[in-house]
Simulated scan of single mutants.
Amino acid sequence: MRSLLYAEMLKLVKQSKTYYALMAILVIELLIFITAYYQGSTILDLLLDNLKQSFYFEGTLLNGNLIMYIVLNSLWFNVPLILMIVTSGLVTDEYKDGTLQTVMLQAVKKWKFILSKYIMAVLFTVTIIALMMLSTFVMAYSIFGKGDLVVYINTLNFFKSTDAFHRICWAFASGTVAMVFYSVVSVTLAIFVKDSAKTWIAAALFLIITNLLLKVDLGVPALNNYFFPKLIDTWQQLFYFETNWLAIGINNAILIIYCLIFSTTGTYFFNKKDIG
């Protein structure tokens, strides 16, 4: 298994797709920073115009904590789509290049081979989000400094700078679980679909449907509480003024169980299918 993981790591490091993904995420961050730098104060003034007539705000609300919260919102669609494209390629590229048959001719068990794909997809996702978090912290605090955080989720919620920092850290951790879920799903889709372009379309469709179902009342309490589309926004619950830490922990644990279900399903079918 160790040699398989090492081989997968080398593939990720050497393929250009990995660096395009990193650059794409960096571009998203830079666009957010540029927009915030030139127009952020104007947008905040519009949002808080009525409140400023009744309350006195000391300091600037356009600060590093707010920028990091805005970057976190890229976890809704942009970042998971990029991750799904790259991680699905761990499998589809094997079919495309015809290397899968060659590998299977060696003394390699199929379940170990595909399990290494899942493990590498998880490690890649965690690494990307960690780099994203680190780069965001450095640039946000360097350019905009620290300050209190104002977030609008149904109502305006205000958090002191230190509290905001802790919440953002936990939000990145919770968001990582959601991103790992998407990456695991993309590898599973690749096992069934095989073709790169078709897998990307299937991944994008899965992402869109999941985001749509997040806002839909499914009519059954169990589905509304525990169906995976209802769990992907768990990171955002950290920005409610009253934080239900138990619910957040349970949601992330259930999402990890979904990851295991999808990976087990993909491993089982890959192990059973003929590689031709």
Rank of each mutant, 00 (worst) to 15 (best):
Ser3His: 14
Ala7Asn: 08
Glu8Cys: 01
Ser16Ala: 11
Thr18Tyr: 13
Thr18Phe: 14
Tyr19Ala: 07
Ile25Arg: 00
Ile25Phe: 00
Leu26Gln: 06
Val27His: 03
Leu31Val: 15
Tyr37Gln: 10
Tyr37Met: 11
Gln39Arg: 15
Ile43Glu: 07
Ile43Tyr: 10
Ile43Leu: 11
Leu47Phe: 03
Leu48Cys: 07
Asp49Met: 09
Gln53Asn: 10
Glu58Thr: 13
Thr60Leu: 12
Asn65Val: 14
Leu66Cys: 10
Leu66Val: 09
Leu72Ala: 06
Leu75Thr: 10
Trp76Asn: 15
Pro80Lys: 05
Pro80Ser: 06
Pro80Asp: 03
Ser88Trp: 04
Thr92Trp: 00
Thr92Ile: 02
Glu94Ala: 02
Tyr95Ile: 02
Asp97Gly: 06
Val103Glu: 04
Leu105His: 12
Gln106Met: 03
Lys109Phe: 07
Lys109Glu: 06
Trp111Met: 00
Phe113Ile: 01
Ile114Gln: 00
Leu115Arg: 10
Lys117Ile: 00
Tyr118Gln: 07
Met120Arg: 00
Val126Tyr: 01
Ile128Cys: 00
Leu131Asn: 05
Phe137Ala: 14
Phe137His: 13
Ala140Ser: 14
Leu149Trp: 04
Leu149Ile: 01
Ile153Val: 05
Phe158Pro: 04
Asp163Phe: 04
Phe165Ser: 02
Ile168Thr: 01
Ala171Val: 01
Phe172Ala: 11
Ala173Asp: 11
Ala178His: 02
Phe181Arg: 06
Val185Leu: 15
Val193Arg: 11
Asp195Lys: 15
Lys198Val: 05
Ile201Phe: 15
Ile209Gly: 08
Leu212Ile: 11
Val216Asn: 05
Asp217Glu: 06
Tyr226Gln: 02
Phe228Tyr: 14
Pro229Ile: 02
Leu231Pro: 00
Asp233His: 09
Thr234Ala: 07
Gln236Ala: 08
Gln237Asp: 08
Phe239Tyr: 08
Phe241Gln: 14
Phe241Ile: 09
Thr243Arg: 14
Ala247Val: 09
Ala247Ile: 07
Gly249Trp: 03
Asn252Pro: 02
Ile256Ser: 12
Ile256Gln: 08
Ile257His: 10
Cys259Gly: 06
Leu260Ile: 15
Leu260Asp: 13
Ile261Cys: 15
Gly266Ser: 06
Gly266Met: 13
Tyr268Pro: 02
Asn271Leu: 07
Asp274Glu: 12
